[in-house]
Amino acid sequence: MTASRKLDPAGRPLYRVAEIPDHLATVTMLRRLRRRPAEGQEPAATLFYHGNKHTDLYEIAASQELPALSPGRQAAWTAARTCARCQATRTNPLAHIDRGRRLCAGCVVTERTAAARPSWLRLRAAAVQWARDVLDHPDTVLIAAYGLTDWGAPYHVHAMTPDKEVLVDVVARRAYPSAEGAIGGIDRVLGGIAADRLVPVLTPLVGRRLIHTVRSERGHYGGHHTPLGRLSELTLGPYSPGLTDPSIRQHRKDDFHLRWTDWHNRTWYDHPHSSPTYGRFGLSSVPIDGSDAAALTTAMLAGLHRMAIDAHPDGPPACPWLPSIGLIPCRAAPDPRSGLCLHHTPAEETDGAPA
C-alpha cells in the first residue's frame, strides 16, 4: 500500500490485516466475540485484503452483544473452542480433531512428541550399551577421516586406541604419474602419501574393531561413508588400483556418527510450540578442538565416555506416557525394551506407545 492510499474513497482509514487496531473488527471478527454492529452503526475504517478486496471495520465498543445462546448451543459453541487436553478455550473453533477430540496446535505437538519418544528412548538405551561394549572391547580403534573438500583428496586419516595410542596418522592424496619423476616423488611434491601406497601404513588396523566417522572441511558429516571408503575413492581411476585389503573391516553398526545421533539427537525442539524435528547431527554437541582427523578421534573418545555413562543433556530417561487430559507425563524410569515404564507398557507388547 502506497503512502497515497491511506484512506478509502469515502475518506475512512484504510488498513491491511496486520495493521488492524485492537479497537476495530470486521463483522466476522465481531461474531467470534458474540457481537454484531449496532443498528445504524457506521463503519469506522476499511480493511484492504487479498489484493483488491475490501470490507468494513467497526468500533468494538459501539457494537452490541448477540442474543444469548440456548444451553445446548452454548455448550456446542464452547466445546468447539476448548482443547480436550489442556482445557484452554480459544476465540476460534479448533480445527484439529483426533478421535473425536479437538486439540490446540501446542497439544498436537505434545501428543506427537510423546508418541515418538519411546522409540527414541529405545535407540538411546541401545547406544549406551553399544558405547560400553566399545570401551570394553580389547581391539577397539577410533578412526576418522577429515577431507579438505567433500569430493576427494587430500584426506587426513587418524586412528588411535581408547588409551590414546596413535596407530595411523597420515594424509592421503590421489596418485598422479606426472609427479613420480619429480625429486623426492609425490610424497614431497604434493604432501602426504599417494593413495596406492597406503596398505603398509594401514596394517595396524588389521583385525581391529574400527569405530569410525568422516567429516569435511565444510562441516559436513558423511554418515554413509567410512574413512577407508574415502581412501578407496582416491585409488580408483586410471592411475592406480583400488584399496581392497579384505582384512580391514568397518561395520555400519560401529558408525559413530549414527550411534551418537541415536543417543543425543532429539526428535523435537525445546520450544513447546515448535514442530517435531528430524535429522542427524553427528558430533554437533561434542567440542572439537581443531580441524583435522585427530580432533575428530579425540571428540569421538569424549563422546563414547559420555554415552557410556548416559550423561545426556536432558537428564535421566523418563517415561513419556501422557494421561488423557493434562500435559504432565509419567516420568518414571522406562524399560529400555519399550521406552515406557513397566506400568504403562501394554502387557501384550514390549514396545508399546503412549495411550
Rank of each mutant, 00 (worst) to 15 (best):
F256R: 08
W263M: 02
H264Y: 13
H251M: 14
H312A: 06
T297N: 02
S291F: 11
H264F: 13
P276S: 01
G282A: 02
W268L: 04
S274C: 07
L304C: 01
P276M: 02
Y278R: 15
T261F: 05
D310V: 09
K253G: 13
H251Q: 15
H273K: 13
L283D: 02
P317H: 10
N265S: 13
D270H: 08
S275G: 06
G282M: 01
L283W: 00
L258Q: 05
H251I: 13
A302F: 10
S284L: 15
R249K: 12
H264S: 08
T277L: 13
M307D: 07
V286I: 12
N265F: 12
A308R: 05
T261L: 04
T298Y: 07
P317N: 11
A308L: 09
K253F: 14
D314F: 11
Q250K: 14
D292F: 02
L304Q: 00
G303V: 10
L296K: 04
D292R: 02
A293F: 00
P272D: 09
H257P: 03
P317L: 11
T277G: 09
M300S: 01
H305T: 04
L258C: 06
H271I: 08
S291P: 05
H257I: 06
S291D: 09
G315W: 02
K253C: 12
M300N: 00
T267H: 12
R259I: 10
S291T: 11
P317M: 14
W263C: 01
H251G: 11
A295H: 10
G282F: 00
S275H: 08
S274W: 07
T267S: 12
R249Q: 02
P317E: 11
Y269L: 14
H251P: 10
I309W: 01
G303Y: 12
R259A: 06
W260P: 07
A311F: 05
D255S: 14
A293M: 07
S285A: 14
M307T: 04
A293D: 05
G315L: 10
T298D: 11
K253N: 15
H273M: 14
R266W: 10
D254M: 05
R306F: 01
F281M: 09
M300R: 04
D310R: 01
H305I: 01
D310I: 04
P276N: 01
A299V: 01
D310P: 06
L258S: 04
P287S: 08
R252T: 15
M300I: 05
H312P: 08
W263P: 03
D310C: 08
D255I: 05
Y278G: 15
G315N: 05
G279N: 01
L304S: 00
D292C: 08
S274F: 06
A295M: 05
A294W: 00
P276I: 00
Q250H: 07
G279H: 01
L283I: 06
Y269C: 14
H264I: 10
T267N: 12
A308N: 11
D262M: 09
H273D: 13
G290W: 07
G282D: 03
H264L: 12
A302L: 10
H312I: 03
D255N: 15
F256A: 13
W268R: 07
